[in-house]
Amino acid sequence: MELSPDETVFWSHGFIQINLTIVTTWVLMLAMVLSSWLITRKLKADIKITRWQCILEMIVTGMNSQIKGIGLNKPEKFIGYIGTLFLFIAISNLCIIFPGYEAPTGSLSTTVALAMSVFLAVPFFGIVETGILGYLKTYIQPTFIMLPFNIISELTRTLALAVRLFGNIMSGGMIISILLSIAPLIFPVLMTILGLITGIVQAYIFGILATVYIAAATNEHKAIKLVKNNK
C-alpha cells in the first residue's frame, strides 16, 4: 500500500525523479494560474462586476483582512506568499473529491518543502521589514538566555508545520482507502466530506501560522522600539 504519491514515479534519471506529487502540483499550478488569468484578463473597475471577479475579490479581500487581523498592517506585501500558500494547500486538499486523486500535501516531501519555505520566508520578510539586525534581535528576546530556545522553536515549529499537514492529509487519505476495502459504500463519502473540512482547516492553520511567524519576525522590532520610547 502506497503511503505517499512520491512512490508513484513516472520518469527518473539518477537524482531527478518525476513522480505523482510533482505532476499533480504542476497540474494544480496550471489550473490555478489559468483560471486566475482567465478571470483577471477582463477585470472591470466599474461598480458592476462579473460573478467570477466577485468571487476572486471576496477570496482576496478575505485573506487580506485575515492577514491584517493578525497584525500585518500592509497585507498586500504578504498576500502574495501567504495567500498562495493557503490557496495551494486548500485546492490540493479540496481536490480529493476527484476519484483517483492523491493530494500532493499528503506527501511529506511537499509539506516539508512548504514548511521550509515558511522557515525561509520568516527571516526574509523579517529582514526586509526590519533589517538584519532587527531580525537577529528577535532571537534574544526577551533576554539573550532565550537565544537557544528561540533557535530550537524556529526549527521545531517548521518541523511541526510539515508533520501536522502531512499527518492530517495522509491520514485522511489512508482512512478513505482503508474504508474503501472494508465498507465501500457511503462511509468513504462521509470520510471524504470530513476530509474536505480537515483540508480547509489545515490550509487555514498553515496559512495562519505562517502569518503569525512572519508577523512575529516583523513586529518584534517595532515592539522593541515602542518599549524603548516608553522608557
Binding site: L3, S4, D6, F15, I16, Q17, N19, T21, I22, T25, W26, M29, M32, V33, T84, L85, F88, P104, S107, L108, S109, T110, V112, A113, L114, M116, S117
Partner: peptide
C-alpha cells in the same frame, strides 16, 4: 514515509513559481 529530497526541492521551486 521517506522524504524524497528532489521532490522537496522541486516543490519549493514549484511553490515559488506559483
Amino acid at each position: 514515509m521517506k522524504i524524497n529530497w528532489f521532490t522537496v526541492i522541486a516543490q519549493v521551486i514549484n511553490f515559488l513559481i506559483l
